[in-house]
Design a protein around this nucleic acid. Structure first.
Length: 486
RNA sequence: GACCCCAUCGUCUAGAGGCCUAGGACGUCACCCUUUCACGGUGAAGACCCGGGUUCGAAUCCCGGUGGGGUCACCA
């Protein structure tokens, strides 16, 4: 059995996003399940589009998601380089070999001429394609024109007839009519290789055994297969995974549903939730199981359970899943994960002392079942650190403007001032006061919640006050009494 | 337009010819719990794209249609 070597080969342009992450995830799962090697390769062929530090961005995203890679930039496994741009010498060597064997040829047609031809093709309802103008130039003439400094690209001589069958692990055999294929460009006029060429050479040289990539590449596969043939190399095994579609069923794009991974981090999503959600998009272990860790999924992952049809990406379900994972966090872990979000809001500093940490943990626990993300948790807990800046308008109308509220709030403040600040103690005190005042408990409870938090919804008042402590509680009740109806 | 892929509730999906009165999850709605909001619990509505075959029997197999997606670059 051959050694499984898979790669994830992103272009450094733009941000790693959700569709990207899902394909990387499937590669990772496959590699781990097979005990193979997972490789990161940066396809920075197009110099003009390269982004400085792009490799780092991908490595960071990998790190966050937990996709450990075995070979990649900065992690040599003997199959480097892992930056496509550094493999140019190989690309050119293969190219000259193809040229020497007359499997490839220089083409001197200008881009404008070709564009015009394609436009004409479309107008006439014909499939737009390269007319083959330079295909039959003699090798000598080609050499002469190159020597004369004429601008040119290098094209592959694609068979004009026949059928190419792609054996895909997910789709089965898919056949393509070769007469429909162009003599596609291998080397651009600027001397850099095209994607189809560079990635094939790289995959061959890196001994990639399986290429798992998005379905959108299926149509390109016959071209690559022809290239492998021309190069005299054995092609890897292909598996085209279904695409992820935006909620409106269109292809994911930068301005359309392709949420960058960094965005999820910033919003306070948990990587384990994102990964769990993503793995279930187009794959499942069978049955009704839906919660899996990365390692569990790696155990279970097989290509025959990968869906064939594209999946629409649904934020609601991912948010629900995130909330589920968030609720499962223990107090220490919840604190650890929320801390940067609290700090970002200026609610505490780096040097929070033990008391403050304990306070934050207690507060966080109270909002845990009420939020879906870490950012929401930080927001929900803000009033524990800062006095309410505003009071819910509807709440003020309902709970503060009832006649006598000011007096009740003052009475509550006084009563609570010397109460045991535990949920039970507070409940006892408030209940007793309500009885003495002859009002329902709710008459005290709702104004109190609004007074200390500024909101009408939130944790149970008694738990809330217990954490808040006597000082903050009494002070806020008194402030609220000032603005409540006498 | 040509070529390729795909097709189960709104969404993610289970389903490998009888186990399907099509199961689960998100979302939606109702009820319960309850000081609010969540969480949790219970329940409801909600799908096999259509048409032909094959078969005793089809969501499952075949063909056609329709629909959706993708690809047709000196982008990756």
């Amino acid at each position: 059995m051959t050694m499984v070597r898979v790669r994830f080969a992103p272009s450094p342009t733009g941000q790693p996003h959700i569709g990207w992450a899902r394909t990387a995830l499937f590669n990772w799962l496959f590699a781990r399940h097979e005990g193979g090697t997972f490789i990161l390769r940066i396809e920075d062929t197009d110099q003009s589009r390269s982004v400085e530090g792009a490799a780092q961005v991908f490595e960071d995203a990998f790190g966050w998601l937990g996709f450990t890679y075995d070979e990649g930039p900065g992690k040599d496994g003997g199959h480097g380089p892992y930056l496509q741009s550094e493999r140019l010498a190989s690309h050119l060597r293969v190219l000259s070999q193809l040229l020497a064997q007359e499997q490839a040829y220089p083409c001197f047609c200008s881009a404008q001429t070709l564009d015009a031809g394609r436009a004409e093709d479309r107008r006439l309802g014909r499939p737009p394609r390269y007319p083959g103008t330079c295909r039959d130039l003699t090798a000598a003439e080609g050499r002469a024109r190159i020597a004369a400094g004429e601008a040119h690209v290098i094209r592959l001589k694609v068979p004009t007839a026949g059928t190419m069958v792609v054996h895909d692990l997910i789709r089965g055999g898919v056949s393509f009519d070769l007469s429909l294929l162009d003599d596609f460009v291998l080397l651009k006029a600027d001397g850099t290789p095209t994607y189809n060429f560079a990635s094939v050479v790289d995959d061959a040289e890196m001994a990639i055994s399986h290429v798992l990539r998005a379905d959108e590449h299926l149509s390109n596969t016959p071209k690559q297969l022809i290239l492998y043939q021309a190069m005299g190399k054995t092609a890897p095994i292909f598996a085209h995974v279904p695409m992820i579609l935006a909620p409106d069923h269109s292809k994911l794009s930068k301005r359309h549903g392709a949420t960058p991974i960094a965005e999820f981090m910033a919003q306070g999503f948990l990587p384990e939730a994102v990964v769990n959600y993503l793995m279930m998009l187009g794959w499942n272990p069978g049955g009704d199981r839906e919660f899996l860790t990365l390692d569990e999924a790696a155990q279970l992952f097989t290509l025959d359970r990968v869906q064939k049809n594209p999946a629409v990406y649904d934020t609601q379900k991912m948010t629900w899943m995130n909330a589920h994972y968030l609720r499962a966090l223990d107090q220490g872990e919840l604190w650890r994960r929320c801390r940067p979000f609290l700090a970002a809001r200026g609610l505490l500093t780096e040097s929070a002392d033990d008391t403050l940490v304990a306070y934050a943990k207690a507060a966080l626990s109270l909002v845990q079942s009420r939020v879906a993300t870490l950012a929401e948790a930080a927001d929900a807990v803000t009033f524990f650190f800062k006095e309410p800046q505003a009071f819910d308008e509807e709440g003020v109308r309902r709970h503060f403007q009832r006649p006598g509220t000011a007096g009740r709030l003052t009475a509550l403040a006084e009563r609570l001032a010397d109460t045991d600040f535990t949920a039970a103690g507070l409940e006892g005190a408030l209940t007793a006061l309500a009885q003495e005042l002859g009002v329902p408990r709710a008459e005290l409870i709702h104004p109190a919640r609004l007074a200390v938090s500024g909101k009408t919804v939130g944790p149970g008042v008694f738990e809330m006050l217990a954490v808040l402590g006597p000082q903050r509680t009494v002070q806020r009740l008194q402030v609220a009494a000032q603005m409540a109806a006498p």
